[in-house]
């Protein structure tokens, strides 16, 4: 059952991304991409590690994450990914999956959230976050986004995210909206989702975390947003900062009820 769903997702990914990838990437990239498709999405390796990490006693408190509340009660992982970001009463904040994991790691395991947030992507505890988000997102594969909007803070973060999305600045006058505000556009040969509309927002937002063939890495949503801001010529968004959570709220709410999440997807 799991394998057949998984195979369907790989095939779906191939349809969605084959054209831009084949024409855009280097020969080496194409070879790696084909290899990846032949063998399935390597994100599965991160998923397996993530499931182990969830149950592993770690940190100064030698505790597991099994009591972590991702919004549906302590320990519930199935289906939570498509409801985040959401408001959490214990922190009084709207949190995305990654900022919520920092809270759980700190309170349950005693791993300082500040230090994890400062760790560069792909290193140390950030590698563990990659594995965790791969597994947790996979547990919502095939589900539609259903972010709650009842709490005033959720509404507020959505509204802030919408404004951040349209915020044009920097040397190039770019904003998220420059590339992701219209239907059917491309950068070079890369198709750009129109993130202001439901189905595209679900396809864009619902693909991350994703395995990136070009770098052989698994990128979380935080890392994806970070690289968007880099290319916009903006300064560096701090890990788990409000702008990143607000953008995810805006994208997630826009995606609500449209197409199914395929995260962790496979990308160029």
């Amino acid at each position: 059952m799991k394998n057949s769903t998984y195979a369907a997702c790989v095939v779906a990914s191939a349809f969605m991304f084959a054209t831009p990838v084949l024409a855009d990437a280097t020969a080496e990239g194409i070879a790696k991409y084909r290899e990846a498709l032949a063998e399935g999405n390597p994100a599965e390796l991160w998923e397996m590690r993530g499931e182990e990490l969830w149950k592993e006693a770690r940190g100064p408190k030698k505790a597991t994450l099994e009591k972590c509340d991702l919004g549906q009660g302590p320990g519930v992982v199935k289906g939570v990914f498509v409801t985040l970001p959401r408001h959490f009463a214990d922190t009084g904040r709207v949190q995305d999956l990654e900022s919520r994991l920092l809270t759980c790691m700190e309170t349950l395991q005693g791993i300082p959230a500040d230090e994890v947030a400062k760790t560069p992507f792909g290193k140390g505890e950030q590698k563990n976050i990659e594995a965790l988000v791969a597994w947790i997102s996979a547990e919502s594969r095939g589900m539609k986004f259903n972010l709650p909007m009842a709490h005033p803070e959720e509404k507020r973060m959505y509204e802030i995210g919408k404004r951040a999305f349209n915020y044009r600045g920097g040397t190039h006058d770019f904003g998220c909206v420059t590339c992701h505000g219209e239907d059917g556009k491309r950068i070079r040969l890369q198709d750009l989702p129109n993130l202001t509309k439901g189905p595209d927002a679900a396809r864009g937002f619902g693909s991350w975390p994703a395995y990136r063939v070009s770098s052989g890495e698994l990128w979380s949503m935080q890392r994806r947003l970070n690289d968007c801001f880099r290319q916009q010529r903006f300064p560096y968004p701090m890990y788990g900062s409000d702008v990143t959570v607000a953008l995810s709220s805006y994208l997630g709410v826009t995606a609500n009820g449209t197409v199914e999440s395929i995260a962790p997807a496979i990308k160029r």
Partner: peptide, 22 residues
């Protein structure tokens, strides 16, 4: 609120200073 969030969420890195947000 959005202006406050923009101002608080970024830091400088390499050649890019936070004045890019102005």
């Amino acid at each position: 609120d959005a202006a406050a969030v923009m101002a608080a969420s970024f830091r400088e890195q390499g050649i890019v200073k936070t004045d890019r947000l102005t």
